[in-house]
């Protein structure tokens, strides 16, 4: 049986890496190896995990420096004998080992606007066409692993921005509200602006790391920025508004 050489962060803020050798089998993912480590050598190792199928977004960690889901990272992607470094999400305060305090994200979630849908028609149905919702369905694939929040340099390297920047996950949610065909919220792009949209410099790391393959930048953030341009920075629309009144 091959052995994996792991370097795992142990302890809290003042912790350090501890190295382990753990046996693994073909087809295993990093999370399996960490579980085996837990069952055999480090019984008190703190990790989060739930579904082990890339659906719940609990086991996020930084593997060899890249934010990933442990359950979707196959051991076959490493070179034999390569040291595999497993660190907690670095943007968030460490609780212990691989577990971080992600409560900031939950606080931001509380500030998100709520959908307000128009009522059903006479037959009791809310009619929506598939072509009107497929864009939003992409956004709703989000599993809230917070990997995009972790990798986003706006808060990763500048935590002082956490007060006025919601992060990629929540721009996806704002785009969902903005583009919902039946939503009755004011359609002003200023809503997203209030969550620090223009702090994003579209360097696309969030899209690069999203385990669900959501095109966060191209389909959520840039369209939101463009909606703001419609209102404030489009000269032709501004002239149109002057000439023909509000469009």
């Amino acid at each position: 049986m091959p052995k994996a050489h792991l370097k795992v962060w142990r302890g809290d803020d003042s912790g350090q890496y501890v190295e382990y050798d753990v046996e693994y089998e073909e087809g295993m993912v990093v999370l399996d190896v960490v579980h085996r480590l837990q069952a055999t050598q480090a019984g008190d190792l703190a990790i989060r995990w739930n579904c082990k199928a890339g659906k719940c977004g609990s086991c996020s960690a930084e593997i060899n420096g890249k934010p990933k889901l442990q359950c979707m990272t196959r051991m076959g992607t490493f070179i034999d004998g390569e040291t595999i470094t497993i660190a907690p999400l670095k943007t968030f305060p460490i609780i212990r080992d691989l577990v971080t305090d992600v409560s900031w994200n939950y606080r931001v979630a509380e500030t998100m606007p709520e959908l307000k849908l128009s009522g059903p028609d006479a037959s009791g149905h809310r009619r929506m066409q598939q072509i009107d919702i497929d864009r939003e369905q992409e956004f709703r694939k989000c599993i809230e692993c917070y990997i995009c929040q972790d990798v986003c340099h706006v808060i990763r390297d500048h935590p002082e921005n956490q007060g006025n920047f919601a992060g990629p996950r929540f721009f996806v949610q704002l785009a969902n509200v903005a583009m919902h065909p039946l939503d009755q919220n004011p359609k002003s792009a200023t809503v997203a602006h209030g969550f620090g949209l223009d702090y994003c410099n579209i360097t696309k790391c969030c899209t690069d790391v999203c385990p669900e393959g959501i095109h966060i930048t191209d389909n959520a953030i840039i369209p939101l920025k463009e909606r703001r341009v419609d209102e404030y920075y489009d000269p032709i629309r501004a002239i149109g508004r002057k000439l023909f009144g509000k469009k």
Partner: peptide
């Protein structure tokens, strides 16, 4: 027991 939104219902 877990974070909010991670319950087995997601499966």
């Amino acid at each position: 027991k877990s974070l909010l939104g991670k319950a087995h219902t997601v499966m």
